[in-house]
Amino acid sequence: REGLRRLCALQIRDALKYLEKNLPGLQTMAAAYMQVGKESGGGGTLEELRTQILELALDRAFLAEPLPTNEAAFKQRVDEGRGRLTLIASEISRSAGAILTEYAAAARKLKDSKPPADVATDVGQQLARLVPKKFLLQTPYAEGRQGFM
């Protein structure tokens, strides 16, 4: 999958460069994403978030099962996915933004409520499990359902 993803990315280099610079709401999402993963030693970066969004968009646009197994099937897949990539990346960005906004609100409420240490630790660990650092890539995509996850 990673090799096919890379081959697809090389075929659509210009579109990918455009997306890298124009993902909707990336700066705002990155501010909230910096809090994700702090419990395990460090918050996420804008680059890590951008990479996750683009990898997931490439997977959804080009790597649906069954994977292409020859040159003709690969070219057809690239042609079909090229037109969907920007829309898919925008959908992922919108959903990631909503998730990160909710995560930041929950983390802020936890901090502001000043619960006992054991409660704060428990809730913090639960939040970390719900939104791990690579939440976009680790959360299964539910085909046919509205929304991201």
Rank of each mutant, 00 (worst) to 15 (best):
G3E: 15
C8W: 00
L10I: 04
Q11I: 01
I12D: 06
R13I: 03
D14N: 12
E20S: 08
M29C: 08
V36W: 06
E39T: 12
S40G: 07
S40A: 14
G41M: 10
G41Y: 07
G41W: 05
T45Y: 03
L49G: 00
R50L: 10
T51M: 08
I53D: 00
L56K: 06
R60A: 05
R60Q: 13
F62E: 00
L63C: 05
E65Y: 06
E65C: 05
E65D: 11
T69Q: 14
E71Q: 11
K75G: 05
K75H: 10
R82K: 15
G83W: 09
G83K: 11
G83Q: 10
R84Y: 06
T86N: 08
A89V: 03
S90L: 02
S90E: 14
R94S: 09
S95N: 15
L100C: 04
A104F: 09
A104G: 05
A107Y: 01
L110H: 01
L110A: 02
K111L: 10
D112I: 07
V119L: 14
V119Y: 09
G124A: 12
L127M: 14
A128H: 15
L130N: 13
K133Q: 09
F135C: 01
L137Q: 13
L137R: 13
Q138T: 12
P140R: 15
Y141T: 15
Q146R: 14
M149Q: 14
